[in-house]
Each structure stands twice: as C-alpha cells, then as structure tokens.
Amino acid sequence: MTSRAVTTGFALIAMFLCVSASARPVSYTGGWTVIETSNRASTAGLLHYTAAYNLSIGARYEWQRGSDTRLKAIQPTFLAKRWFGKDYQGNLYLTGGFGKANRGVDGSSISETASFAGVMADWETRSLFVSYEGRQLNLGKFGNQTMHAARLGWAPYEGDTGALHTWLMLEVDHRKHFDKTTSITPLLRFFKGPALLEIGYNLSDSSPLFNFTYRF
C-alpha cells in the first residue's frame, strides 16, 4: 500500500466513519479516568483529567516490552466531534503527546525526546460497536512507529443501567515495525458502572490482551 493510499484511507475513515475509542479518552467535566492497556506491543497506563467536555489532559507511561523502551509523556486528548442520535453515539478524538523515552543500550540507559499524534474514532449503539485508532510515535534515534487498529463489537444482550454489560469483539491491528505486521485479537469486554475490563488473546503473536478503565 502506498503512503498516499494510507493517507487517503486514514482521512476517509476519520471523516466518514465518523465514529470513538474503546476507553472513551475524554470523560465528563471534572472527572478522572485511569486506563491500563496491555497488548502484544506494550503495557501502558494513562491517568487523565477531563477539564471540559471536549478536552482531557493526562500523564502516560508506556513500556514497549520488545525493545525495553519506556515512554513518559503528557497526553492531551481533544474530542473533535461527537455525533448524537436517539440510539447511537459517534466520536472523533485527536490526541498527542510529548515526553521522554528511555532505552537500555549496552548496559546504560539512553534518553530521547518522544512525541506522538493520533486519532481515534468510534460509533456505537447498545449492541454494535465500530472503532478505529491510529498513532504515529516518534522516538528520535530509536525510530518511528506507526500503528493502526480497528475493532468490531457485538453485545449479545442489552444490559440495564448498572448491570453487567458484555461485548464480543474482534480487533485487527497493523504495526509496521513488527515481524508480524498484522494481527487479530478476539476479546471479551465487560462493562459495569464506572469500570470496563477487556480480556483477549492475540492469535498471531500468541500474547494476551488485558485492558482496564475506571472513571471516578
């Protein structure tokens, strides 16, 4: 796929899918959210505060296990657009970050300035879910990384308020810097009140997925 095709596809997805991200990276005004993600590439934590209905500011720590790279960054996220309907909601978020990355090389730790930019889009009803996420991470002399991930989800039942909500999901991700560039992860999402838990298994890389989000 040429870079122009990727660019065009990326823009089209964001513009016309018009759809949010799995963990809702912007909460209600004055709310705090802690998000943990662990997948085939990294284990990461994000603590953010929602300053306005369309803006959150957070601190991110990410450990890329394969290269033993540790990223610490400030991460603002902007809700660029939210589409409302009686039975659906769609969201488009823009995010970015700036910080430092450390990697152990020959017994010593080398530090590099790091930055990233990303887009997240989702659309969901009470029983259907579609999302897309893309991120470009620049790690200076450690190299650049591009990630795309898309999800489809289906809820076998519509849970009441405060009840346990269950989703069956399938995630496809693409990471150019990996040997297996494309991978598939089936996962289960459990949702109850302010807590969200996702458990999955990456079929291509034989690695677990474990995500957790809590709002307070």
Partner: peptide
C-alpha cells in the same frame, strides 16, 4: 437524552 448508549454515559450523568 441523545447518545446514551452505555454505562459510562449513565455514570457521567449521575456524577454531574
């Protein structure tokens, strides 16, 4: 309310 599709939505309304 438009767009209330999940428990996170309910939590947000409850909090505010």
């Amino acid at each position: 309310v438009l767009g209330v599709v999940c428990d996170f939505c309910a939590t947000a309304m409850n909090k505010i």
